[in-house]
Computed example of a mutant assay.
Amino acid sequence: MPKLRLTLAAAPAAVALLAGLCAAEGTADAAVPATIPLTVTNNSGRSGPVYIYDIGTDLASGKQGYADASGAFHAWPAGGNPPTPAPDAAITGPAPGQSTTLRLPKFSGRVYFSYGQKLVFKLTTGGLVQPAVQNPSDPNHDILFNWSEYTLNDAGLWINSTQVDMFSAPYAVGVKRADGTTATTGHLKPGGYQGVLNTLRNQSGGWGGLIQTRSDGTVLRALAPGHGIEAGALPASAMDDYVNRVWQKYSSSTLTVTPFADQPSTKYFGRVSGNVMNFTDSSGAVVTSFQKPDSDSIFGCYKLLDAPNDLVRGPISRTLCAGYNRTTLLTNPNQPDGDAGAFYQDGVTNRYAAAIHSEMADAKAYAFAFDDVGNHESLVHDDSPQGASLTLDPFN
């Protein structure tokens, strides 16, 4: 079953095309209707309008576009160069203390929500330009907004909260099951929103620079560290000391990666030689190699830690990415490490991810692209969903 790990990190600096959204192929083994209800509840405590957008890839046609409040799909028209304005896809959201219900179609995409003003979407010849707020000239930079990610297909619904690109307006997601129960994730602890921001502000090493504030004093978001490096808000050397120590350790010892929980006999063995970490299989044959990663590769789980959709390099890379971000590679030579209490304990670590996980009510989050290694991600799923929910939570 697909798990969502959508990120702008691998896209060009100011542009992410909707084609980058994951498109899950369903199997017709469950009677999932063409649309299901999504109830959006505004518990934010903020005054002013809320706007909602359902944007993604229509799984029936493979086309990119948006859905209206009834769940009807509208394909994007052709874009241009320079980009042209996209059709207004905004759905009026609920007033404070109220709820609005719309319909989710069989899509792989995002549900955006914004406070106070509409988001700006444009179309290029290659597709939709999504917000890239690490770029100070992005037209959405000064808008308070966030998004959830979902796939609805014949096999069910997967919906998650995400902080892969930024930590911003708090919200939670849920899925209503056939037995009437609801599974939810994404709620912060009481005071958790300010808790994350305060932790970053009080952390040495430039982490407070991730926080972006509007001219009126409104905190808009904290950038994910990879975007912080791109924007010059976080030192590019943030993880270098840890990487150097990992490199030293595995120059004389072996890192064992068991990437599949249901295949404990499938193991790969990593050793450092010069600027390369080589992985061998049980026969001793080299199956893949990784250059010494930089901080951006670690935070984005890409570039020198690229994870193709295969059965060898990709699974090893995602395990390494989790180990680097959680800084468990020095304390445990057997990865992935399943002990959440051991995560983020090194003096050099992903402080952004650590702060978010510590303030989540269920400790689950998508604070980096492969935060689902070991099932620590903020995702809910049901193969026969009766409905979904998006709750806009308080900021205090």
Rank of each mutant, 00 (worst) to 15 (best):
L188E: 10
A11W: 11
K267I: 02
A31Q: 08
G79N: 08
A28N: 07
S215E: 11
M1Q: 08
D393E: 15
S253M: 00
A95I: 04
S61V: 09
A231T: 12
A60R: 11
A89D: 09
W207F: 12
S289N: 02
P2M: 03
R201H: 14
L59W: 04
F107A: 13
R201Q: 15
V173T: 04
F145L: 07
G97Q: 02
R214I: 10
D281W: 03
A16L: 08
S378V: 03
Y366M: 09
L197Y: 15
L304H: 10
P96L: 02
L188C: 10
D393Q: 13
R110L: 13
S358H: 02
C321N: 09
I356S: 04
G374H: 00
A90F: 08
A75P: 03
P77F: 01
P83H: 00
Y51F: 15
A23L: 08
A89S: 13
Q64R: 14
P83T: 02
S47P: 04
F343E: 05
A238E: 05
N153W: 02
T327E: 11
G284Y: 00
A34G: 14
P2H: 01
I316N: 01
G232M: 11
L234W: 04
W247Q: 07
R351D: 02
N198S: 15
Q335P: 07
V50P: 11
A95W: 01
A28H: 05
P259I: 06
P264V: 06
L21R: 12
V120Y: 12
N135Y: 05
T213P: 09
V287R: 15
A72P: 04
N135S: 09
A132E: 13
V15H: 08
L152V: 03
T162V: 04
Q386W: 05
N42F: 00
S265Y: 10
I356E: 03
S317D: 02
A75F: 03
Y250M: 11
G300V: 07
G314C: 08
I159S: 05
R221Y: 11
L210M: 11
Q130G: 05
L304M: 12
G45T: 05
R313L: 11
P336T: 00
L21H: 13
H74N: 09
N278F: 15
P136Y: 09
T218N: 10
W158N: 14
D294Q: 13
A28I: 01
K189T: 15
T328Q: 05
K267D: 07
Q335A: 12
Y51P: 13
K3N: 10
P37M: 06
P315L: 00
Q212D: 14
G228R: 13
I211H: 03
Q98R: 02
L6H: 13
K292M: 14
I356P: 05
V196Q: 10
T35E: 00
D382K: 07
